[in-house]
C-alpha cells in the first residue's frame, strides 16, 4: 500500500497463572513497543557519508607542496586522442627569460605549449613532422591536449612566445607514444617459439613505422559496456544506492522482551536459550508482524530444581 497511511494498534495481554510470576521480576512496561521511526531505507544520497575515524583527524602538515622549484614539463598519454601535460616553472628561470626576451620578457610574452609530432625521429628541436602551439592560461599548471592522430609519438615544449614571435623553450617534455585507435594495418605474420625468444630479445626494439589509420575507436569503447556496473564492482566495497523516489513512508513494529532472573539460571524464550547478563537481566527483541504471537519465557535454576515461566500474547493489527 504505497503512499497510504498506516496506523498500528497493539493490544497486549499477559496470560498464565499470576502466582507463577512471583519470583521473577518482569518490568511492567514489557513488552515494550517501539515504533520504528520513518527514515530513508533505500533512497537518498550515497549512504556512506564519509566519517572521520575518531583520532584520525586531518593534519594539514600532510599537504603536498605547491612547487618543487624545478622547471619541468611531463607528458602522459590518456588515450589515442588525448594527452595530459603538467609542468612547473621555477622562480630562478626569470634571469634566463630576461636575458632572452629583454626586461619586459615575461609581460610581453605568451605562455605556450608547443606540441611536436616526433614519430620515428630523433627530435632535435626543429625536425618535427608537425608542431602545434597551444596558448595556455598564465596560471595553468596542467593541460589536456587533444591530438587528431593516434599511434604517434609526441613531445611538448613549455615556453614563451615573445612580442617578436620568437619561441623561448623553458622545458622540453619526455616523449610518449599514443596508442592505436583500431586494428593494426600491419598484417605480416611473424611467429616464434620459446626457444627463439632470446634472438628477439636482443634485437633492436624500434616500433614499426606505421602509416596513418584513423578509424573509429572500437565499438566497445563507445558502447561503454557495463561501465557503471564495472565501476562499482572494481571499487572497494562501498555501496552506491538507487536514485531517490517519490514521497514515501515506512513503519515497522518491534517489541522488546526484557526482564531478570537469578544470574546463574538458564532462560529459554520461544524455545531458544537466551544469554543472561552478569546481573541476571536479559533482553530479546522481536520484529512483530500483524496477527497474534505468543511469547513463552521460561527460567530454570542452576540445579534444575526450580522453574518459572511467563507467557505473553501479542496482537498487532495494521490498516
Amino acid at each position: 500500500m504505497p503512499n497510504s497511511e498506516k496506523t498500528t494498534e497493539h493490544s497486549l495481554s499477559q496470560g498464565t497463572d499470576p502466582s507463577e510470576a512471583v519470583e521473577i521480576h518482569v518490568s511492567e512496561t514489557i513488552p515494550e513497543l517501539q515504533v520504528i521511526e520513518p527514515r530513508e531505507l533505500h533512497v537518498g544520497e550515497s549512504p556512506v557519508q564519509y566519517q572521520e575515524a575518531p583520532g584520525y583527524a586531518w593534519d594539514s602538515r600532510y599537504e603536498v607542496p605547491d612547487r618543487y622549484e624545478s622547471t619541468r614539463i611531463v607528458l602522459m598519454v590518456r588515450d589515442p586522442f588525448w594527452m595530459h601535460a603538467y609542468w612547473e616553472i621555477a622562480e630562478d628561470i626569470s634571469d634566463i627569460v630576461t636575458t632572452a626576451l629583454g626586461p619586459e620578457g615575461w609581460l610581453a610574452s605568451r605562455k605556450t605549449l608547443r606540441v611536436h609530432d616526433v614519430t620515428d625521429i630523433k627530435f632535435d628541436g626543429s625536425n618535427a613532422h608537425r608542431s602545434v602551439d597551444i596558448d595556455i592560461h598564465e596560471h595553468a599548471t596542467n593541460w589536456y591536449i587533444n591530438v587528431d592522430r593516434p599511434n604517434r609519438s609526441y613531445c611538448a615544449e613549455l615556453g614563451l612566445i615573445g612580442s617578436d614571435g620568437r619561441f623561448l623553450c623553458l622545458s622540453r617534455s619526455n616523449t610518449v607514444r599514443t596508442p592505436r585507435a583500431g586494428a593494426s594495418e600491419v598484417i605480416d605474420e611473424e611467429w616464434m617459439t620459446i626457444s627463439a625468444i632470446e634472438k628477439y630479445y636482443s634485437a633492436p626494439t624500434a616500433l614499426p613505422a606505421s602509416p596513418e589509420m584513423i578509424s573509429a575507436i572500437s565499438e566497445r569503447m563507445h558502447l561503454e559496456m557495463g561501465s557503471e556496473f564495472v565501476g562499482e564492482i572494481s571499487s572497494p566495497h562501498m555501496a552506491q544506492r538507487a536514485k531517490p523516489r517519490q514521497f514515501w513512508l515506512n513503519a515497522f513494529v518491534e517489541v522488546i522482551v526484557h526482564g531478570a532472573t537469578e544470574p546463574d539460571a538458564s532462560l529459554i524464550i520461544q524455545g531458544r536459550p537466551v544469554r543472561l547478563r552478569p546481573d541476571g537481566t536479559f533482553q530479546v527483541r522481536y520484529a512483530l508482524p500483524d496477527g497474534e504471537q505468543i511469547v513463552d519465557i521460561e527460567a530454570m535454576s542452576k540445579d534444575g530444581a526450580m522453574r518459572r515461566s511467563i507467557t505473553t500474547r501479542l496482537t498487532r493489527n495494521t490498516w
Binding site: 598519454v77 595530459h84 596508442p179 616500433l207
Partner: peptide, 25 residues
Amino acid sequence: YQRNQVSTPSLSSWGYKGYSEVWLE
C-alpha cells in the same frame, strides 16, 4: 602451444573507455 605469433600489444587498460582516463582526469 609454444609457438605463437609475435606482435606488440597496444597501450590499453580494462577501465572505462579502454585507456587511462579513469586514473587521469
